[in-house]
Write a protein that binds this DNA or RNA. Structure first.
Length: 430
RNA sequence: GGGAAGAUACCGAAGCGGUCAAACGGGGCAGACUGUAAAUCUGUUGGCUCAGCCUUCGUAGGUUCGAAUCCUGCUCUUCCCA
């Protein structure tokens, strides 16, 4: 199966320029996607582009990840209703390093083969480019009429846009287009890929290559990832889902994929894992038989967590999930060693309390509503207890007069309070 | 500039002198069910030293034994006429 066919059955192909497939069959083709270095970590929204590069490398072509240092300083108007904040250079370099680190989990940057992955930063060639040179060498080749015809521009000039569009943003597509030209001339790069919202920007590049270099270059986009319920993909209540374990713990990362809805799971597993068509077909069939087993979600979460983090992190996440959602019991909880315990409850709101005070025994209500802010008011806590909604160390508390003392400590240090099923709070005795 | 209506808890919206911490709907939270889902059902949704008490109905005063409810000033909102 060739690269294009591969993307096609995975549902990762939205639009493709005629001739692209032929080009890929002809020779080892370098192709790039752009990545905005707005943060020092990728998030799962970037993952689709990364997977495209990965498939590209597997198919024997050369993946190029372009860090949009220069373009990130401008801001892509596509899909944005407002101007973007600009990044300074030190931040940019830092972000670039972190991103490269993450990419190396997916792409082979050290191969001896011709299809070794490359990482470039367009800031490196844009920073020396003077304005005069740019408008003479690049700007001269593209008409404003052409640029105005792009959807991303039209939208910003249209009536629904309140803020207007700066000249800086207007030139964005030229700068991105020039990247393509630069890579075409220096790396023989003939293909640019990206999300379907990038089509306009990409074709500016192919147009530029045709007019400046007389060459032929190609474009390919993948559909934007959507969710069946219409909410935005890749977001949780707590924000973006990052690849960086410091920003999103492997446990939360795992949970994100596990909680994928049935409607979305099939699409996602094709896009975000490297499982073969046969394997996925079997999983989908199995899932239809027994949807409550959620075999699709489990496999999806497993594959992606291992790929982004590691097998160990995955196993830890499964273990944590069992304690939190499975038949986790008080004994199981007490059996955990401290480091696992902390990993399981990493990211859970924490409160501290003095150990000596606890030794004397504290009433549950005082402990959770006064000494700590697990509950905002005592009344609410009382209601929760009445409604059978409070657990301490995985055991239901029904008595509002309960006295908590050192006997409740896990690993001689922690008390786990639980509001309802899903809300955990960690109290640390010091 | 003139006139009218209105401002109630997270949101919408009842209440028009005592029985009002305030109907009802939405949302939130919790319980049951379940697949860590959806739907459904149940409870709860100002605070506290919790069968009681305290602070809330735009804001500041007033009338009254008693005010979300009546009166006055102020602020804001909406509508109509200039």
């Amino acid at each position: 199966m060739n690269f294009v066919e591969e993307l096609k059955w995975r549902g990762m192909l939205h639009d493709i320029m005629p001739g692209t497939e032929e080009q890929l069959q002809k020779e080892v083709t370098p192709a790039y996607v752009g990545i905005d270095p707005t943060a020092d970590s990728l998030h799962i929204g970037h993952l689709v582009s990364v997977m495209m590069l990965k498939h590209l490398q597997i198919a024997g072509h050369q993946p190029i990840a372009l860090i949009g240092g220069a373009t990130g300083m401008i801001g892509d108007p596509s899909g944005k209703s407002q101007e973007r904040n600009l990044l300074d250079e030190p931040t940019l370099r830092h972000n670039q390093e972190c991103i490269k680190n993450q990419l190396s989990k997916f792409l082979d940057f050290d191969s001896e083969e011709a299809n070794v992955a490359l990482l470039v930063n367009n800031y490196d060639w844009m920073k020396e480019f003077s304005f005069l040179e740019f408008i003479r060498d690049v700007g001269k080749r593209i008409t404003v009429n052409y640029m105005m015809a792009k959807d991303s521009v039209k939208k910003r000039l249209g009536e629904e846009s309140k803020s207007g569009m700066s000249f800086t943003e207007f030139t964005y597509q030229l700068v991105q287009g020039y990247d393509f030209l630069h890579l075409y001339q220096n790396n023989n790069c003939k293909l640019q890929m990206g999300g379907s919202d990038q089509w306009g920007n990409i074709t500016t590049g192919t147009e530029l290559i045709r007019r400046v270099a007389g060459g032929e270059a190609f474009a390919m986009t993948c559909p934007l990832i959507t969710k069946a319920d219409g909410t935005k993909f890749g977001k949780t209540e707590s924000g973006n889902v990052w690849l960086d374990p410091e920003r999103t713990s492997p446990y939360s990362f795992f949970q994100f994929w596990l909680n994928t809805s049935d409607e979305d799971a099939e699409r996602y597993i094709k896009i975000f894992t490297l499982l073969s068509k046969e394997e996925i077909d079997a999983l989908v069939a199995g899932h239809k038989e027994a949807p409550h087993m959620r075999s699709l979600q489990k496999k999806l979460a497993e594959e992606v967590t291992i790929m982004v983090h590691s097998k160990e992190e995955y196993e830890m996440a499964v273990e944590a999930s069992q304690i939190l959602f499975g038949k986790g019991t008080a004994e199981q909880l007490r059996k955990l060693n401290e480091s696992t315990f902390l990993a399981v409850f990493e990211g859970v709101p924490q409160f501290t309390i003095s150990k000596t005070e606890l030794a004397e025994g504290i009433n549950v209500i005082d402990l959770l509503a006064e000494k700590t802010e697990v509950f905002p008011s005592k009344g609410e806590l009382r209601r929760t207890i009445k409604g059978n909604g409070l657990s301490i160390n995985k055991e239901k508390i029904g008595d509002p007069d309960l006295i908590v003392n050192n006997d409740y400590l896990i690993a001689d240090k922690y008390i786990l309070a639980q509001k309802g099923k899903k809300n955990y709070f960690l109290i640390i005795a010091e």
